[in-house]
Write a protein that binds this DNA or RNA. Structure first.
Length: 554
RNA sequence: UGCCCGAUAGUAUAAUGGUAGUACAUCAGACUCUGACUCUGAGUGUCUAGGUUCGAAUCCUGGUCGGGUAACCA
């Protein structure tokens, strides 16, 4: 019974449409990807908007593949898109459609438009048609065949369909207005000849409908009420409406509403550029964890919840802006902080020998699995004479603000003991090879009975039970916050050479021995990591999803 | 240079003629067995010039700046 609270201008318009009693007060949206690439975070915004809006109003959302160009589209992409939409947590139920489902209807309706004298065949080549379209300041000129008879057009259109013409020989155009200030209304193409097999219809067709002709009609036949798309289609709207006007046979009418696409700092979002990154090997594949693709984010360790929350937080407007990637990172930190199993991993091990600890003794200490969620319980972590800490947690000559381990200083090993550094051992070159420390047996569990405090708590891994692992540290794919924004420089010039750092010899506690791919962890004090699909029982591989927030001011 | 769209803190958004809020980011402090989390606090904003109005971020006009648009792509 709660009143519906619109979250953005599109939902406000839907409220108004509903109040006006339009379309029997139905709300039906669709997500219409072209299967010519993998989905990215920008699509996630659209998916969340379309499915989320329908849900808000008790309506439905279709998944429809916009597959009108067989030259670019492949089944591989269809499969990945369905997987990604599902992973995000949305369900199109039985409403899976393809624009190619409507090829027959589209053909029949084109015939109808020809009969009405509103479409004609043009035999001119591409350059000529383009030239005749005029310029924004000069009206176009009519094609010589603009006024040919419906009978003539019908005959030729049938021949086109039969394959009697070569690719490019002729096209079908809508007869609208060659003088329109909107270039899209200057007799746009409806059909072109493409002698290419289609991923679903095979060799059945050699003529294929153009987007503008297919999209609105598909919406109409599916009963879509609100056709939500991005800003670049705004100038197409009069054309969308023109075709709907010709089709409409009742009060029902779909409505196109545009919003601004998502841009994020330090990455690129165009499918063309993402394809280029993959094809030219700048990243390993579409699911490379540095990619803004949905599969890339998934492999990186992002959760569906975090992506959905991000889509919610960025908002929906017509302002063409750039969202700070920090917001995305905030969303995954917030989600994983509540849910991720804590574990200790040392990525740059510095050996410590506890000189007063019995040689062969292995103790176990209790560690909390997630301080944010008591129900996740505790685990045992082995502790022994030789342990490793992060090399950067020790400083031989500490600065003022450095309050971790240093000669003579005492720190806590998390969940274990206080230790004090007594000796620094170096090799001939002067590199620190190990530290000799003593532990205080009285501080087992991490607290001193005498109440004394230490300023720092370090993560650690004991040599006993330690597992070797590989850690892949990711950074921004581009060094410039706006790699697309420079007209003189190609976006590839801003590729970050350090976007991937593979650290091969890390040590991790035995708890993760049988970790399953994609499981999220927090490595205490380091960040959130997940198990990469490359991981094996012999060689564990982790991806750094995102570091912990770092307020460390040196 | 035609047509279309847009302009609110650093960024993204809210306020739909009546107190300019929120989130992220930044900075400061508290707390802390993660320099995390959490909590508290701070600073920074209505593109511009007119007009309408008792009152304008909001309505109108001009300007400025930004984006889209002239594919047999979607």
């Amino acid at each position: 019974m709660d009143p519906i609270v619109p979250k953005n201008f599109i939902q406000q318009q839907i409220v108004e449409d509903l109040a006006a009693g339009k379309n029997d007060k139905r709300v039906h949206t669709r997500f219409p990807p072209e299967p010519n690439g993998y989905l990215h975070i920008g699509h996630a915004k659209s998916i969340c908007l379309n499915f989320g809006t329908a849900k808000l109003f008790g309506g439905k959302t279709n998944l429809r593949f916009d597959d009108t160009n067989p030259a670019k589209e492949e089944t591989e992409y269809v499969d990945s898109i369905m997987e990604d939409v599902k992973w995000l947590g949305f369900d199109w139920e039985e409403r899976l459609y393809y624009a190619s489902d409507y090829f027959d209807q589209l053909y029949d309706f084109a015939v109808e438009l020809i009969k009405r004298g509103k479409a004609y065949i043009d035999f001119q080549n591409q350059e000529l048609i383009s030239e005749q379209r005029g310029t924004p300041t000069r009206p176009g000129t009519d094609s010589p065949t603009r006024n040919s008879s419906p009978e003539e057009n019908l005959r030729i259109f049938a021949d086109m369909k039969e394959g009697k013409y070569n690719e490019g020989a002729c096209v079908l155009r809508a007869k609208i207005d060659m003088a329109s200030p909107n270039m899209h209304m200057r007799d746009p193409l409806m059909y072109r000849i493409l002698k290419q097999p289609h991923h679903r219809t095979g060799d059945k067709w050699c003529i294929y409908p153009m987007y503008d002709y297919a999209h609105g009609q598909s919406d109409y036949w599916e009963g879509i009420t609100h056709s939500i798309c991005t800003l670049e289609f705004e100038v197409h709207r009069p054309l969308y409406d023109w075709f709907v006007d010709e089709l409409q046979d009742s009060d029902y009418r779909p409505r196109q509403i545009e919003f601004s696409r998502l841009n994020i700092t330090s990455t690129v979002m165009s499918k063309r550029k993402l394809l280029q990154l993959v094809k030219e090997g700048y990243v390993k594949d579409w699911d490379d964890p540095r990619m803004p693709t949905i599969c890339g984010l998934r492999r990186r360790g992002y959760t569906p919840e975090s992506v959905r929350n991000f889509a919610e937080l960025v908002g929906i407007t017509k302002v063409d802006g750039v969202t700070d990637v920090a917001l995305l990172e905030f969303c995954i930190r917030e989600d994983l902080n509540k849910r991720a199993q804590r574990v200790m991993c040392v990525t740059d091990p510095l050996k410590i020998i506890l000189t007063n600890f019995p040689d062969d003794k292995v103790e176990e200490v209790d560690a909390i699995n997630n301080p944010e969620d008591e129900s996740m319980g505790k685990r045992k972590v082995p502790f022994s004479k030789v342990i490793y800490i992060e090399r950067e947690d020790f400083m031989e000559e500490p600065t003022n603000k450095f309050y971790r381990l240093a000669p003579g200083k005492e720190v806590r090993l998390r969940y274990a003991y206080f230790i004090r550094c007594n000796d620094v051992i170096k090799d001939a070159a002067g590199n620190i090879t190990e530290l000799h420390c003593t532990y205080d047996p009285e501080t087992k569990g991490g607290n001193a009975p005498d109440g004394r405090k230490v300023k720092a708590t370090l993560h650690w891994v004991a040599s006993s039970g330690a597992l070797a692992c590989e850690v892949r540290q990711y950074d921004r794919l581009f060094t410039d916050p706006d790699p697309d924004g420079n007209k003189e420089k190609d976006f590839l010039e801003f590729l970050n050479p350090d976007s991937l750092k593979v650290i091969g010899d890390c040590l991790i506690e035995p708890f993760v021995a049988n970790a399953i791919p994609l499981t999220n962890y927090q490595f205490e004090r380091l960040g959130y990591f997940n198990v990469d699909p490359d991981s094996t029982t012999e060689k564990l591989v982790f991806n750094r999803t995102v570091s912990l927030k770092d307020n460390n001011k040196k």
